[in-house]
Amino acid sequence: MIAIGLEGSANKLGVGIISHPPNGGPAQILANIRHTFVSPPGEGFLPKDTAKHHREWVVPLVKQALKEAGVCIRDIDCVCYTKGPGMGAPLQSVAVAARMLALLWGKDIVGVNHCVGHIEMGREITGAQNPVVLYVSGGNTQVIAYAEQRYRIFGEALDIAVGNCLDRFARTLGISNDPAPGYNIEQLAKKGKHLLDLPYAVKGMDCSFSGILASIDLLAASLQPPNPQRLDPDTGEPITTADLCFSLQETVFAMLVEITERAMAHVGSSQVLIVGGVGCNERLQDMMALMARDRGGSVYATDER
């Protein structure tokens, strides 16, 4: 069976074509292309502009995907699209495009839950059997485990998502959104070495990021001239923007690993699967691997940049 999938729940528009062999073997990816709406530094992506981007690019991307996969419309069995959750306007644009293709080609249309899509894709690629899933992106922060025939949310962010926290801090610093704000924070964080005191907000299996964002925003403002230079109390070295990125990452990732570990202890699983955009962060993957190792397990990370 060959399926074409359209995903546009945020600023990336992706079109993929996947072939499932009839004998139930591993799925084959025939095409997997995307186009990203990049907003200028200091700005986030607005729903209406993102939706406009998706409307402009969906047809060229579908054409290119078909060409890359070397399949024609006749070969395709169904059209899939992201049904949600995500940003309303871009989701709607892509849903309309998917419906249009399905009607035009006379194919079945299948709506896919965004979170479940991430998880199933991750399981397919990594071969993880029954992992605890940490789903971290710009819009979602959840710890999910499969129990009694359902994916169940064990813990989540109580306010903003972790990716949103990182993206908005990138905006505070005015650093580039290309290729992704989180990526640029990660690169800066590699140069940081002084850990600043930030709130640590874990409540059971849930966590909160808005207070941390407010706190690091204040710290960032206090580093701007004409304020005097801040020095690290232990080493006497000046505190830099890189130190801020480093502290932010260390704090929020420690929170994520902690709630994941708690869910693992609860369901008795030793595998972790990290999905979503923030899951690309190598520091998060390393921290998770250290935690999983101590529990006798392993970590699977999926998303490519």
Binding site: R152, I153, M205, R293
Partner: peptide
């Protein structure tokens, strides 16, 4: 363990820990 979808809690956390621990893979040091 029956957790409902809307189950929201810090908890029920440690409740079956001892059992789940013993049933999981051999533990490292």
């Amino acid at each position: 363990m029956s957790l409902q979808p809307q189950q929201n809690l810090p908890s029920l956390l440690l409740q079956e820990n001892s059992q789940s621990q013993s049933s999981s893979t051999p533990h490292p040091a």
